[in-house]
Amino acid sequence: MPEPATVGYGSSVVLVADDNEVAQRLCRRVLEKAGYMVLIAGDGQQAVDIALAENPNLILMDVAMPTMDGLEAMRQIKAARPEMRVVIASAHSMASDRERFLAAGADDVLSKPFRLGDLVAVVARLTAKPSA
């Protein structure tokens, strides 16, 4: 269920895939404030659908989600759109998890809980145009 951006001037679109409502709200609040257009997905399947339909510049993907987990969603998205950037934002933070996510194809990994500045920075870095 895509939601329209409340701030219209952002040039980059970020898809936030998270089943936790609090996390959804937090990310939307912070990224919109930073000038991005934010789409929200509540589970993995939604994330795949929206990503393929909307072609967001970046996907912020939780892992533990109902119906389809974030890693499977990422796999399907990358299979269809290899160039699409995916940042895994997970509360799984065992030492091996980060490696596991990067190996699965994540462009970066953001551990929950995160500093808001870190969230903005990783999104800014991966949405920046090569020419910029």
């Binding site: 936790n20 609090v22 996390a23 937090l26 912070v30 533990a64 509360a91 933070s93 551990s111 929950k112 809980p113 995160f114 500093r115 808001l116």
Partner: peptide, 9 residues
């Protein structure tokens, strides 16, 4: 950590 994400953010 999931709970703390909202609390901290």
């Amino acid at each position: 950590r999931t709970a703390l994400t909202g609390i901290q953010g």
